[in-house]
Amino acid sequence: MIRVKNVGLQYGDGPEVLSNINFTLAAGSFHFLTGRCGAGKSSLLRMLYLGHRPSRGYMEMFGKDISQLDAHELPEIRRRVGVVFQDFRLVSHLTVFENVALPLSIDGRPQQEYTRDVEELLNWVGLGDRLDHYPELLSGGEQQQVAIARAVIASPQLLLADEPTGSVDSEIGERLLGLLMELNRQGATLLIATHDTGLLERHRHHAGELHLEEGGRLRQLPPVRAKAG
């Protein structure tokens, strides 16, 4: 589904923040993206949600060579990617319902077509009674739940999450991670950027790892097999 070969990424004329990146994400797989602060995790995610195209190398998403796509073809690829941003990026003048419905709204779907889906999803994440609330009235965990709901409402094939448990306590963190894993079980490819080692240890037996090292290089590690007995 995602193939990245010898990719480099730089912003403007600056130095490369990612160098010779190689990895593959199979459809329906689950990976953590790890590395020290400043290693380039957010840049890698940004490249995958097409916020910035690679400066060099080959990147294939959903069977398409990204470097060959025209600008007008990118929105279709982006709509197949759900993103949970580290800072949530909820829209302050839109209600919880409107925030979650945003990906469907920008796709031009009529509201009556998606109202039920949005309400069901918000019920599922536990915010069914907050549909008309504005983000500023929600706690950090609730805002994160809204961000996750918005990322998955359009049933993306690739789900990217940048530190989704970073601003909530461990109990809520596990609950949010449970939501993302449930979506992964339903078929979405999942890539979670985190530096929460505890979270990583608890789930590395069923999740692979992309580890960014110093100098913007990357190692891909398979899930760790659980020890017998």
Binding site: R78, V91, I106, G108, R150
Partner: peptide, 16 residues
Amino acid sequence: NELVALMHLIGARNSF
């Protein structure tokens, strides 16, 4: 600009 960037990143066409 934050809203426009968000819409752009989640797949809004420029025409939208």
